[in-house]
Amino acid sequence: MRRFSGAERWVHRTTAWLMLVCVATAACLYVPQLAELVGRRHLVVTVHQWSGLLIPVPLLAGLVSRALRADLSRLNRFGPHDRVWLRAVRHRDHRPGSRPAGKFNAGQKLYAAWIAGAVLVMIGTGVLMWFTGLAPLMWRTGATFVHDWLALAIGIALAGHMAMALADPEARRGMRTGSVERHWARTEHPLWGESADAPDDDPARRQGLSG
C-alpha cells in the first residue's frame, strides 16, 4: 500500500543529506583529530554554514505537494490514541493493540516537532555566529553555547533515528519506494492501515479532501 509520495521521499532524502553534511562538517570543526585529518578549515566552515542554511529549503519547496502538506498536518496533530501510545511505551507494553497509531505514531510526531524546532534554533544561532555585526558579543557568546550543545543533542537524536530505521526494514522500504506491506501497516499503524484505502487520523483524508 502507498505510504509516501515521490515529493515526500525527495524532501526526506535531500534534507537527510544536508543534515549529514552539516553534522559531518561540525564534527570536523570540533574534534581535533578529525580537524587535523581533513584540514582546509575555511572550506569546511563554508560547507557547514551553507548546508545548515539550506536544510529548510527542501521542505519549503516540497510544500507544493498536497501529500506533503497533508502529512505535515498529521504530524502536527495529537489525538487521544497518541496518549495511549506514549503510555504503552512508557510502561513497555507490547501487547497487540496496545499502541494505536495513525499514519505516524506519537514518537514520530514528537521527533518531528523537536527536530524542526532544533533546526530553527541552530539556524538562528548560526547566523549570529556567522555575521558578527548582527549582535553584541554577549549575544554571540550565548549563541555559541546554545549552538554547540544543541548540535550534540541533534547528533544523538539523529543517531537514535537512524538506529530505529535500521531496525525496521519495512519502514525504510516505505521511504525508499513509497510503498509498504499491508500487514506491516496494520500492525505498526493500525488506525491508518486497517482498511484498503488506508484511512487515518485525518478527517479530511476520510472525506477525500487531501491526498
Rank of each mutant, 00 (worst) to 15 (best):
R90N: 06
H91M: 11
R92F: 13
R92D: 11
R92P: 07
D93L: 12
R95D: 09
S98P: 03
S98E: 08
S98L: 08
R99T: 03
R99G: 09
R99V: 09
P100H: 03
P100M: 04
A101I: 00
G102N: 01
G102I: 02
K103E: 04
K103Y: 04
K103C: 06
K103S: 02
K103V: 01
F104T: 09
A106Y: 03
G107W: 08
G107S: 11
Y111P: 03
Y111F: 15
A112Q: 06
A112I: 03
W114V: 11
W114P: 07
W114D: 05
I115H: 04
I115N: 02
G117K: 10
G117S: 12
G117Q: 06
G117H: 04
G117D: 02
A118I: 08
A118D: 00
V119P: 00
L120Y: 01
L120S: 10
L120I: 12
V121K: 06
V121E: 06
V121S: 07
M122V: 10
I123V: 08
G124M: 03
G124R: 08
T125N: 10
T125F: 09
G126P: 07
V127G: 10
V127D: 08
V127Q: 08
L128M: 12
L128F: 02
L128A: 12
W130F: 06
F131Y: 14
T132Q: 15
T132M: 12
T132H: 13
G133Y: 10
P136W: 06
L137W: 13
W139T: 15
W139H: 13
T141L: 14
G142V: 05
A143C: 07
T144F: 13
T144P: 00
H147D: 00
D148W: 13
L150N: 07
A151Y: 11
A151M: 14
L152C: 09
L152M: 14
A153T: 14
I154A: 06
G155C: 06
G155V: 11
G155H: 02
I156M: 13
A157T: 13
A157G: 07
A157M: 14
A157R: 01
A157N: 05
L158F: 12
A159P: 00
A159W: 05
H161R: 07
H161T: 03
H161I: 04
M162K: 01
M162R: 05
A163H: 02
M164T: 09
M164I: 00
L166I: 02
A167T: 07
D168T: 05
D168L: 11
A171R: 10
A171Q: 09
A171M: 13
A171N: 03
R172K: 14
R173F: 09
G174H: 09
G174F: 02
G174T: 02
M175N: 05
M175S: 06
R176L: 15
R176F: 14
T177W: 09
G178S: 03
G178H: 08
V180T: 10
V180Y: 02
E181L: 14
E181N: 15
R182Y: 05
H183V: 15
H183T: 14
A185F: 01
A185T: 06
R186W: 05
R186H: 11
R186C: 04
T187A: 14
T187W: 00
T187H: 13
E188W: 04
H189I: 05
H189C: 05
P190G: 07
L191E: 00
W192H: 12
G193V: 08
E194V: 10
A198F: 13
P199L: 13
D200F: 10
D200L: 04
D201C: 11
D202K: 05
